[in-house]
Amino acid sequence: MRCLSLPLSCTVEQLYICLYKRGIPTVILDSGWEPRPDGRYPLSRRCIIASEPFAILKARGANAMLEWADGRCDIGTPFELLRTVMDTFSLPSDDAPTPFPAGAVGYFGYELKSILEPVESNLPADINMPDLWLALFDTAITVDLSEQMVHITSTGLPERGRARERRATERAEQLLDKISAVPQHSSFIPFADTTSESMKVHVSSNFSHTAYLDAVRRVKDYISAGDIYQANLSQRFKMSFRGDPFTLFLHLRQRSPAPFAAFIDGVKFHII
């Protein structure tokens, strides 16, 4: 593993802007809170950027594929392929300056439950996203807000032996060059016209007001009858959006900073 460290000479936001490339699978694990007056971060102190994975594990139902950056593709079931990945690419964590030197980042969807327990669902599959999406990164950039340092970690995966050492060095130096080129005074471009009619959005729910109240009454009846003791009654809100997801993430980071936030560019989808 190759590790490089340098002082943080710009804002985290500027680092995001210069390192993120649209259309390339990227994950940002962000800590947007400011420190306390004593300089300490009460909940979180690190921001992590990982991009250009060497493989991506995707699944829809019981069908999964492991797509490699070189074009190869392995087919199997979600947890079989996940076990193979974990057994093949596990890394020791005691020789890295950060808790996450590299690895898998993504999500496990609730729909994976049908693989573990055969429970039928009448819900329509109306969101065109994988049930499982994990990007396997061989590098990571970690910003330590407390120490005001940037740590580059490069593992050289998925290569082996000397080839892994060469790849680790090359990838680390590439990231160092990118970070060194980040201007110290830059800002992101806001939405083109935040006052225009096009920026006004309509938020809708899959429940009407009456239907939601009826559902609450049915849940209370089920509880009174002893059929259930708890129900998680939820509704989905949706809205149209025609802007840039990354710019939206930056605006949310400014307007509503959170100690633990994330941005995922899955190329065909985005998660904020």
Rank of each mutant, 00 (worst) to 15 (best):
Y16C: 05
E120Q: 14
I24P: 06
I115F: 11
K113F: 13
Q184R: 14
F54R: 01
Y212H: 13
H270S: 12
I24R: 13
T88V: 05
R2Y: 11
A135R: 00
L81Q: 00
V105D: 00
L112R: 01
L19C: 12
Q184C: 12
I228V: 15
L6K: 13
M129K: 09
G243M: 11
P259H: 13
A50G: 07
S51A: 13
T11N: 06
C47F: 02
Q148G: 10
R218W: 14
F191T: 02
S205I: 05
P78L: 03
L82D: 03
I127W: 12
S44R: 13
E117G: 03
L4M: 13
P78A: 03
G266M: 06
E173F: 11
R217G: 04
A258I: 12
D126Y: 07
T77W: 01
I271K: 00
A59Q: 03
Q14W: 00
I152R: 00
I56T: 05
S154F: 05
R45Q: 11
S187F: 11
L248Y: 04
H151L: 08
R236E: 11
R166N: 09
M129P: 00
Q174F: 12
S196I: 06
R45V: 04
V150P: 00
F54T: 02
S205V: 07
K113T: 10
Q184A: 13
G23K: 08
K58W: 01
A64N: 02
V143N: 01
P99W: 13
M149W: 07
L123I: 11
Q230K: 08
C73Y: 05
V143E: 01
A62G: 10
W133H: 02
E170Y: 10
R164F: 05
G71Y: 04
T142A: 09
S114G: 04
L4G: 05
A261E: 02
Q230A: 07
S198T: 08
R36N: 12
E165V: 14
P97S: 14
V150Q: 03
R45P: 02
W133P: 02
P259A: 15
E80M: 07
F100K: 05
V85A: 08
A225C: 11
G109S: 12
P259R: 15
M149N: 10
A168K: 01
G243H: 10
